[in-house]
Structure formats: C-alpha cells, structure tokens
Design a protein around this nucleic acid. Structure first.
Lengths: 348, 348
DNA sequence: GTGAAAGCGCTAACAA
DNA sequence: TTGTTAGCGCTTTCAC
C-alpha cells in the first residue's frame, strides 16, 4: 500500500553534494546559487519528482500561502462560480484555496472557521451564511473579532465589524435596474418573491422595491411581497400562493435563479405563459438562468472582477497592505442587468 | 492588521504549569492526564480559543488527516453534490477535504496533483477528467503511478492502473434501465445524444444502447447517435441537427442533465412537446433534473452511498487496510432509474 | 556563494 | 501520570 518514504531536501542535498540550505535556496529562488550546483539540484528535483512538503514550508515560513474560503453552499452555482474564479486568481498569485461549506448553520460555521484557522490560512474569504444577517448573531460577531486578531477576513456582505474587509453587492442598484426594466415594459403589478427579510441584501431589495414603487406613484400592495427561502420550492410555493389567493401580478422579481425557476413552473402549471402573461426576472444570473426556459432576465455581478477583488483584497490584507480601492472598509460591486427572454411588455 | 502572535501549546503549558507534552495529551486525548491538570489546560484552551496548528501537527504526525479531491469542475452539480457528501463523511471521521478542479486539462491536472501531494494528503479522490479516457494519456498514467508510490488514489471511473482503487458506475446497467423504460413506453425511434466516445463511460453507454436495440430486434440508425460535449449547447445543437436533418426520434437519451436541458429547448423551439411528442431522459439526476420543465426522468446513483464509499475507501487505503467490498480493485455503484415527467408513452 | 544550526508547533518515544 | 527530548521538513539567520 503505497509506503515509500517521501524524499526530502536532505536526500536531494546529499546526492547533489550540497547543503540542505542550498537546495532550499534553489527551491525558493531566494538567493544566488552557483550555476553548477543549481543545475545538479534541479536535475535531482526533476529526477525524483520532488515536491517540497507544504506543511513544513508553512510551519517554518510563518506566512502561509493558502487562503481559506467559507461559503454557504458550494452546490449553489453562485458560490461555485465565485469560488472557481477565486481559485483561478489565487493560483495566478501563487496561493492555494481551501474551501468549505457552512450550510447556513452557525455552529458549523464556527467549526469551519476553526478548521481554517488551524490550517494557518493567510486570510479568510467569507460568503453567505452569518455574514448576511441584518442583525448579526452575537456568536458570529464574537468569532469574527476573535479571528481578526490573527487573520484578516474578507466578507461578501454588508459591513458589520470594523476591522474586517467588505466587498458588497449594490443590492439597491440591482433592484432599481430590475424595477426600471419592468416599469419600462409597462408593468405596474409587480411582485417580489422569495428570500428572508432577516438577510441584509434581501432586506435592501424589499425596501428598494417599495421605494421605487413610491417614486413612480404606484400603490404598494403587501400581497405582492412573498417571503420565503432561496430555493426552487420557495419560488414555486410562493407563486402558487399568489395564484391561489387571486393576486396575480404581471411581473415577478425572484430573489435568485433557483426561485425564478420555481416561479416559472408554477406559472406554466397555471396555464400562463412567460413572459406573455407574466414576466419573471431574477438576481444572480448564474448558469441556471440560461438553462431555464425561457432564459431568465437577471442581474449579473461581473463575477470575474468580483472574484478577483475578493482574492486581491485577501492577499493584500494578509500582507498588511492598505486596500486602495476600499472606502471605509468597503468595496462595492456594480450590478448589471442582462435582458434575456423571461421579461416582456405587459399584456394589455 | 491582525498581527497578534498566535499562541501555542507552550504558552498553554507555561500558564497551566504543566509540560507541553501534557497539553498535547489532552488535545489528542491520547493518554490519561490527571483531572486537575486536564481541567486547567482545558480552561486555558477555552480562554484563549486555542487551536493547535494543523501544519505542525501534520508535520510531526507523519500521517495527515486531509483527503485531497480532484474533480473536473466543481460548478457541475454532479461533482458538487459528490464533493459535499464526501466532505460530510470525511468530517464525520475527523478528516478535512481539500478540493480542486482540473477543468479537464491534463497539464492543470498534473499541477493540482502536485499541489495535493505537497500538502501531504492522506489519499486522493479523483473524479472526471483524465480518469475517464478510454485510452488513458501516457502523462496521466505515469503521474498516477508516481503518486501511487506514496499516496493511495481512489478513482471514480474505469480501471486503468493496477494499484489504484476504483469506484465505478455501472454505465451498462444505467443504459439498460433507460432503454427498457423507453421501450416499455413503446418507443422504437430512440436517439442518444451528447458526450464523447473517447470517454469511457460514454463509450459503454453508446455500446449498450446498440446492444439493447439489437436484442430487441430494432434496427440501429447511425443518425440517432449524436456525439458532442457534456453541456447545454451540446444538447441544444445536437437536437437542432436532428430536426434539420429530418431524423426525428420519439425519444432521446441525453448524456447528462445539462445536455437534456438543451435538448428540451430545441424540441420546444421546434414547436413540439416533451414528453407528448418526444420523450427525453438523461443520466445523473442532479438537481437540474428537477429545475427543468418538465422534470427529467433520469438515472440516479444513490449519491449518499457513493460519496460515503469514496471516502471510506480513501481512508481505508490511507491506513493500509484491505478494502473488503472491493472486487479486483473495483467497487461498483448501482444506478437507479427515477421516472419523472419528461418521458411518456410514444405518440401514435 | 554556501554550510551549520536554530527554530516553526506539534507528537511520540523514553524515562522517571 | 508526567516531563524531557528528539525529531517531522523546511526556511533563515549568521558565519565563513
């Protein structure tokens, strides 16, 4: 069963007739080494497929080269996409990503933080879960503060604690884009569906929704705000409820692509057409939005730069650098409206 | 910027007036420690939120407690699901998962393997990418053999190298289930769409498809085998081609849920109904199959036990144990047909 | 330019 | 039961 003892710089050093320190030097390229020695060492590294032990490196270095990432659920394409982009950027800069899931459970979240801490990550990127609470849980805030004593944390969410770094989506702008798009199409009966008011961004979305209605002098109907979760069923159930109660809007804003898919199913099952009878738009523009039929008009966040900013900020913070683009600890991600098939002119 | 020096077992030891070894003992629960000392140590651990440095532990231990996992693309719900289940099982057993993506690129794959090796993972689980090649790439086989000298590898795919462990889906059985389901519904014009013959499981699926046709005395039509990739467009384009060429089957087997979604779009765009005019079934039964409209009849793999087996096997192999359930290095995952909405009786 | 040696934080003999 | 000590594999002064 695979039990060859892995080789070390000592083995290389011995065979190359140099000191371990010299091997280390060529490995890290940290100092000049005479050509011939360097060549000999490199040849042996090649010969044995030698890979320096990352644990030992991390131990002696003090500085680690891995970035921890805690997301709510990697199965959600929103997080998966962001993670992949972060990994790409991290790799480009010589870092490794260590991801894990919190599944929105605060106990679990704390455990995962500890795990990341134990692995001496240089910084932590945290998306989803406790970061999104309108009223942050005491346990989370205290854990966060504790972590911040040793490890910088970059949070995708609204600002809560002073020392952390924030990269926040402009949920207000996102909602305005959606509303203005629908209003321009002639919609006046607009519902917003899914999500929980205790979640910061959702709260902002709901509020902005109301503000825009008011601004355009459109009466606000509480039946048009249907809370829920962030999954398929929540969209499906919510829309079914509107049908059942006879409150049928001409357009629905779904809290994300999953719930939009559920909304569409409900609409179709009720014999209506999207967007012919009812328009459906959503936040996130994950690949789901292109798989659903019709393709979803949705809010994109320019994921490429989002991921890049997260990692850049994490690395900069890990090195104790100032983050230039940060205003009062926050960087803002601009949402972009992507119009596809699920929204159309209001039916007369 | 977060620069408090992290505390160590020495700090704890000093303050508790015991030796570092004793602190280590309570940490690992590896030996009896007198109650009062244990209490003092635990109190301090609590007080300082002390978390032992996983790198140091890994270094001294010789044995690491992390399992590396290399998947083709974590954004694919098939891999994401499996990863999450593996993480769960690993956690239950005190292991940490370190995931990364290969994106089907052999160079990249090799790099990621090296990264995992450097991190001294106890074992590697490898899904997708090079594992699936009908004719394994020389570079892959050589890398695999090199890794196997020090680290056990569990592969989700067909057997290629002797020393590795395999957990293989029974693609033949899966295809038989699909075919028999469609045949029972009266279909005789069945197409199979998407995927590449150079991929092992796909190859088996194609072959079995032909065998079943033959067994039932149904003429095989080459126009009904449409290769492609494993994504949405490949399903969409492939189905469009069938319409264009006038080869319109009454049922389509899509290589996975993504391509099935594309197939459905094409069908709907051509004014036909699923399953009224054309039935569509697929492999994998990821959550996509429930989001698509109609919900996809699909092949499930009992992911729970699949993930569990992967991790169990990895850990057992890491500990040099025999894998009981293995037959000649291979464990087989039984596919299960899940009938939903996208398949129905053939149209008369 | 290069080697010797100390140290990163932990575990695991080995003594006591 | 507990402390002392010697590593684990690497980096990094500090001399030379």
């Amino acid at each position: 069963m695979a039990e060859n003892k892995p080789i070390t710089i000592y083995d290389i050093a011995r065979e190359a007739e140099v000191s371990p320190a010299t091997v280390s030097r060529v490995l890290t390229n940290s100092a000049n080494v005479r050509k011939d020695k360097k060549d000999r060492v490199e040849a042996l590294i090649e010969k044995y497929h030698f890979k320096p032990n990352a644990l030992a490196k991390g131990l002696s270095d003090t500085r680690s080269e891995t970035i921890g990432m805690l997301v709510a659920d990697i199965r959600n394409p929103y997080y998966a996409e962001l993670y992949v982009l972060c990994e790409e950027e991290a790799k480009k800069r010589g870092y490794t990503m260590l991801v894990c899931n919190s599944f929105g459970n605060i106990e679990f979240e704390t455990q995962q933080f500890d795990m990341l801490l134990q692995h001496q990550v240089a910084a932590i990127i945290h998306l989803g879960g406790a970061v999104d609470d309108v009223k942050p849980k005491a346990q989370y805030v205290s854990k966060l503060n504790q972590m911040l004593q040793t490890t910088p944390v970059v949070i995708g969410g609204m600002k809560s604690v002073e020392k952390a770094h924030y990269v926040t989506i402009d949920a207000q702008k996102a909602t305005e884009l959606l509303m203005e798009h629908l209003l321009a199409l002639g919609h006046r009966q607009i519902a917003i569906l899914g999500g929980n008011r205790s979640v910061n961004s959702t709260c902002v979305k709901y509020r902005t929704y109301q503000n825009v209605l008011e601004k355009y002098g459109i009466g606000f109907r509480p039946e048009y705000i249907i809370g829920g979760k962030y999954n398929y069923s929540s969209g499906y159930d919510g829309m079914n409820r509107m049908f059942d109660e006879g409150n049928i809007p001409t357009a629905v804003i779904a809290i994300n692509d999953f719930s939009a898919a559920g909304v569409i199913r409900s609409i179709v099952e009720h014999g209506c057409k999207v967007p012919g009878d009812i328009s459906v738009v959503s936040y996130d523009n994950t690949y789901l939005s292109d798989i659903v039929l019709p393709k979803l008009t949705s809010i994109d966040y320019n994921y490429d730069s989002y991921g890049k900013i997260l990692v850049e900020t994490a690395i900069a913070a890990a090195n104790g650098e100032e983050i230039q683009k940060e205003i009062n600890g926050v960087q803002v991600i601009e949402p972009v409206l992507v119009v596809k098939e699920s929204s159309g002119a209001v039916k007369n």
